[in-house]
């Protein structure tokens, strides 16, 4: 298990918290929470050690597209970058969901 921390310069504050996913084999859960800070903090707990650079690349790409300001927690149990990106995008959809 490894804990990773990242910070991103962002500009679009989110208004409500959302949760997506399950900590299943090859999967992850993602939590977005609103923040008062002017940057986005991402805290990751992952079961797969040694992928710091891969995570950074996935997150760089995500925030380039969606510069949301939030506190983000990720609990990961060995997902591939594709699955990570999918769950992050699903969380964005949940943010837009009016329900």
């Amino acid at each position: 298990m490894e804990k990773l921390h990242y910070k991103f310069e962002t500009k679009n504050p989110i208004q409500k918290p959302v949760h997506i996913g399950v900590v299943a084999s090859g999967d992850l859960e993602v939590i977005f929470r609103p923040t008062d800070s002017d940057e986005t903090v991402v805290n990751i707990v992952t079961g797969s050690d040694g992928f710091k650079e891969v995570w950074k690349n996935v997150l760089d790409r995500f925030f380039a597209r969606y510069p949301i300001q939030a506190n983000i927690e990720i609990n990961d149990f060995g997902s591939t970058p594709g699955v990570v990106n999918l769950r992050l995008t699903q969380a964005m959809e949940a943010l837009k969901d009016e329900k």
Binding site: P17, H19, V22, V23, E29, R33, V45, T46, G47, N75
Partner: peptide, 21 residues
């Protein structure tokens, strides 16, 4: 008491196991 309530197991991370919210 859903995933946003921060009730996670305090016993998994000390054993190197990823918890769930």
């Amino acid at each position: 008491v859903g995933p946003l309530d921060n009730m996670i197991s305090p016993h998994l991370e000390p054993q190197g196991i990823v918890p769930e919210s």
